[in-house]
C-alpha cells in the first residue's frame, strides 16, 4: 500500500516541483482514503459480522442493566414460592432460583452490579495507572525508578490474597471490591502506559514540538497523551471482562458483593448446591457471564488490532 501511495505522488509535482498544480492534486488526495484499501471485502464482512454480534450482545446487556428499574420485571429480591427452582415459564422466562426469585430479573440486576464493578475498577485503574505510567515514561530518572519499583512490588503480591485481606479488614462492600481490583490493575496500566510513552517520546514529532518551543507539559498533554490513551483504553476494555470474572470468583467464595444485591457471581454460587438437580440456576448466569466476557474480549481485541493496523500503516 505504501508503494501505491508513493506513486500517487508523481502526478502532483510536475516540472520544477514548484508550488504545484493544485488541481492535479485533488484526485489523488481523495484516492488515499485508507478505509477503501484496508482489507478485502470478504475479510471486512466477517470482521463486521462477529463485530456486530458481539457489539449487539453488549448493547443488550448494558441497555437492560441501565433500564432495569423501568423494565416489566419481577422484584429481584422477592421470592415467588410457586417458582422455587422453577423451570422456564411464561411468567418467569428463565425460571426461578432455590428460593423462588425470578432468574431473569436477578440476571439483569446482577448485570448492573457486575458491570459497575468491572467498569469502575477499570476506569479507576486506567486513569491512575495511565497517568503515573505516562509520567514515569516522560519524566524518567528517579520518578521512573520509584514508580517501577512500586509496580514490581505490587505485581509480585498475590492478587486474590490482597482482595481477601481487604474484604476481611474493611468488610465486603462494592466499594472495597472496586478499589481492590483497581489497585491490583494499576501496575499493569503503569507498565503499559510507560512503555507506550517511551515509544512515542522517541518519535520525531515530539522532537519537533520541542524544537518549536512547546513547554514540556504541553508536549506531554498534546503530543504524548493522545497517543497513549488508545492503547490504554483498548487494554482497559479487555480488563472489564477480567474484572467481571474476578468479581464472580470473589462472590463464589462468599467474599463478593453482599446479598441481597444480586450479582452474576453470587447467582452462580447460590445455585451450586442444586447443581445436580437444577443445573439451570447456576448455568444460566454462568452462560451470560461467559458470553459477555467473550464479547468484551472480542470487541476489545478487534478495536486494538484496528488501531494497531493503522499505526503500522503510518
Amino acid at each position: 500500500m505504501a508503494e501505491a501511495r508513493e506513486t500517487l505522488e508523481e502526478p502532483i509535482l510536475t516540472g520544477n516541483g514548484g508550488p504545484t498544480d493544485l488541481a492535479a492534486m485533488e484526485p489523488d488526495l481523495l484516492d488515499v482514503e485508507p478505509d477503501q484499501t484496508v482489507a478485502s471485502g470478504r475479510r471486512r464482512r466477517s470482521f463486521q459480522f462477529g463485530w456486530w454480534l458481539a457489539c449487539g450482545w453488549l448493547i443488550l446487556v448494558v441497555g437492560a442493566a441501565l433500564l432495569a428499574p423501568i423494565l416489566p420485571l419481577w422484584e429481584p429480591g422477592t421470592p415467588d414460592y410457586t417458582n422455587v427452582a422453577g423451570g422456564l415459564s411464561a411468567s418467569h422466562p428463565l425460571g426461578g432460583d432455590a428460593i423462588g426469585r425470578d432468574n431473569l430479573s436477578r440476571l439483569i440486576y446482577g448485570a448492573r452490579a457486575s458491570l459497575l464493578v468491572g467498569l469502575s475498577a477499570v476506569v479507576l485503574g486506567a486513569v491512575i495507572g495511565g497517568l503515573l505510567g505516562i509520567i514515569a515514561g516522560y519524566v524518567g530518572g528517579k520518578v521512573e525508578r520509584v514508580l517501577l519499583t512500586l509496580t514490581d512490588a505490587t505485581l509480585a503480591f498475590p492478587g486474590l490474597v490482597l482482595l481477601i485481606a481487604a474484604v476481611a479488614v474493611f468488610g465486603a462492600s462494592m466499594t472495597v471490591i472496586i478499589v481492590g481490583l483497581a489497585v491490583l490493575s494499576i501496575p499493569t496500566f503503569i507498565r503499559l502506559a510507560r512503555a507506550t510513552t517511551l515509544v512515542i517520546v522517541q518519535r520525531e514529532f515530539v522532537t519537533a514540538a520541542r524544537a518549536y518551543g512547546a513547554r514540556p507539559m504541553r508536549v506531554m498533554l498534546r503530543e504524548v497523551v493522545p497517543n497513549v490513551v488508545l492503547p490504554v483504553a483498548a487494554y482497559g476494555f479487555i480488563m472489564v471482562g477480567v474484572f467481571i470474572v474476578a468479581e464472580g470468583s470473589l462472590s463464589f467464595l462468599g467474599l463478593g458483593i453482599p446479598p441481597p444485591t444480586p450479582s452474576w457471581g453470587s447467582m452462580i454460587a447460590a445455585g451450586r448446591t442444586e447443581l445436580l438437580t437444577h443445573p439451570q440456576i447456576s448455568l444460566i448466569p454462568a452462560a451470560v457471564m461467559f458470553v459477555t466476557v467473550l464479547s468484551i474480549n472480542y470487541v476489545g481485541e478487534r478495536t486494538r488490532k484496528r488501531f494497531e493496523v493503522k499505526d503500522s500503516n503510518l
Partner: peptide, 9 residues
C-alpha cells in the same frame, strides 16, 4: 490526518 498522506506529502 497524517496517515492519509504519502511519505513525500
Amino acid at each position: 490526518r497524517p496517515h492519509q498522506f504519502s511519505g513525500g506529502q
